[in-house]
């Protein structure tokens, strides 16, 4: 289990990274925390010609709260975000969700942008981004564009990011004053990828629910004024719509059960 050969560049700025991506395109691969990329490299599932290491580029790390959003530089580590003073106030959902990402050792390296770009259907950060309707900012020599969560992650390990694009910042809308959040995750072992993960948000009588680990990417529904058995009905339909598949950890049917069950708990937890 040793990686195949590749060239390696450590960049100091966005500019440098973007230039290299323009030069090498599909042959290059960004490495941020390496917590997903390195296992794939060691298993030789990925074969880049050039590895562009962005972990040390100062401008790709840091968190800013401005106006209505929190803007996180893409290579900010998950633990740096977890330690950020403003987290509880501005992104209470992430304060709940982040500790579920792997272990503290993997969060010490793993980045916010890396998790989103990796686009694992079970990952917590894409789930939160989907629920909160966050935005990923992409930069290439061709310019900058911002993609909403649902346009960014398009399938299993697949995003709309082009080969020459670098994710530079992630924008999470700040939690509205009246919002209440819940986060639920079911995994086999502590620190494992979720079998099913759910995030819920309530503002008044509007509820949004995002589910990860079932479909090819997190899926979101929102409802207004749901009560009593209507909640169960809505969750049941949502569960059936998600599809899902059997794997060695759980069956598709089990995932639907979890969506129904944990969905109810999550929604209840947000209830006033």
């Amino acid at each position: 289990m040793k990686p195949p050969r590749f060239d390696y560049v450590r960049v100091e700025s966005i500019e440098q990274a973007v230039e290299l991506l323009a030069q090498h395109g599909d042959e290059a691969r960004v490495i941020a925390g390496g917590q997903s990329l390195m296992p794939m490299l060691n298993m030789r599932l990925v074969r880049p010609q050039v590895l562009i290491d962005i972990a040390k580029a100062a401008e790709l790390s840091g968190i800013k709260a401005n106006g209505k959003a929190v803007s996180i530089a893409a290579a900010t580590t998950q633990n740096a975000l977890l330690r950020w003073q403003g987290l509880r106030a501005h992104l209470p959902l992430l304060a709940q969700a982040l500790p579920h990402i792997g272990h503290f050792q993997t969060r010490n390296r793993g980045t916010v942008g890396g998790s989103l770009c990796h686009a694992d259907p079970s990952s917590e950060l894409p789930l939160c981004l989907a629920l909160l309707e966050g935005v990923v900012e992409l930069r290439s020599r061709r310019g900058t564009r911002r993609l909403a969560a649902r346009d960014f992650q398009v399938g299993v390990l697949t995003t709309a990011k082009q080969a020459d694009e670098l994710a530079t910042r992630i924008h999470f809308p700040k939690a509205p004053e009246d919002a209440v959040f819940a986060f639920k995750e079911f995994h086999r072992r502590h620190g494992d990828f979720a079998v099913v993960a759910l995030a819920a948000m309530r503002c008044g009588n509007a509820v949004r629910l995002a589910v990860g680990g079932v479909g090819d990417r997190p899926e979101v529904r929102s409802w207004c004024g749901l009560q009593g058995s209507a909640i169960d009905d809505a969750l049941n339909e949502f569960a059936w719509q998600l599809g899902g598949s059997d794997d060695i950890h759980a069956t598709a049917r089990y995932r639907r059960e979890l969506v129904r069950h944990m969905g109810r708990l999550a929604i209840a937890e947000t209830a006033p």
Binding site: D233, N236, E237, W240, L242, G244, S245, D246, E257
Partner: peptide
């Protein structure tokens, strides 16, 4: 298992 609502065929999940 609780089926989907009346009138809609169950979505096909990939089982097995």
């Amino acid at each position: 298992e609780r089926p989907p609502a009346e009138g809609t065929a169950p979505a096909k999940a990939e089982e097995g």
